[in-house]
Simulated assay, not measured.
Amino acid sequence: MAFHDVRFPANLSFGSLGGPERRTEIVALASGFEERNTPWAHARRRYDAGMGLRSLDDLAALIAFFEARAGQLHGFRWKDWSDYKSCLPSRAPAFDDQVIARGDGVQKVFALTKIYSSGPGSYVRPITKPVRDSVRAGVGGSEVFAGRHYSVDHATGVVSFADAPEAGAEITAGYEFDVPVRFDTDRIAVSVASFQAGEIPDIPVIEVRV
């Protein structure tokens, strides 16, 4: 499968239904206790692209996008309006939003991540599709600048520094990001009459590993 580095129209993904999915295997023991485990290290997100359609022009744009991706064949970027920043939705990304690593004086290349914490639990999510020109970075509590101090691979989410951060220095980043996805169907079934009557087509989209 190829990945097309294009974003599904953001105005169409606004209002879509979806979010993270986990897979948990549960075994009920004879004692009444349970054993729970998961084969997934990371969540997988699902969305319904049909929920954002509001006009026949929107439907035409979606069909054009679907055809250009050859249905399920090619992946693309998706803006998850409920979770697309390194910070809270009400804030703008800042260079110290997320701690992505600590320097060791040798390593120059680091991957973007986002930490989700609640109570004693936390989850570190890899960020592989940052939005171009949205990444800000910091080293040891001070902001550094793209082009002069570091570069970003927007296809992988990797940040490469010109000089290795000194040992123990916190490496931080703030950014906007997309989710790599593909259509989870090879068929769109909708009629103009039903669409005008308010019947929304079901067009599933699912996250892919890249």
Rank of each mutant, 00 (worst) to 15 (best):
V131C: 14
D133V: 05
S134R: 14
S134P: 03
R136M: 13
R136L: 15
A137W: 00
A137S: 08
A137H: 01
A137G: 11
G138K: 06
G138Q: 07
G138Y: 06
G138W: 07
V139I: 15
V139Y: 01
V139C: 03
V139H: 02
G140C: 02
G140A: 11
G141I: 04
S142G: 04
S142M: 13
E143R: 03
A146P: 00
A146M: 05
A146D: 00
G147T: 07
G147C: 09
R148F: 08
R148M: 08
H149N: 15
H149W: 05
V152F: 03
D153Q: 03
D153P: 00
A155P: 00
A155Y: 07
A155F: 08
T156R: 12
T156N: 04
T156P: 00
G157D: 10
G157C: 10
V158G: 06
V158P: 01
V158R: 14
V159L: 10
V159Y: 01
V159W: 01
F161H: 04
A162N: 13
A162Y: 13
A162T: 14
D163Y: 06
D163F: 02
A164T: 02
P165S: 07
P165F: 03
E166L: 12
I171N: 02
A173G: 05
Y175P: 02
E176F: 01
F177R: 12
D178C: 08
D178T: 12
P180Y: 05
P180A: 12
R182V: 13
F183A: 13
F183Y: 09
T185E: 05
T185Y: 04
T185G: 04
D186F: 01
D186W: 04
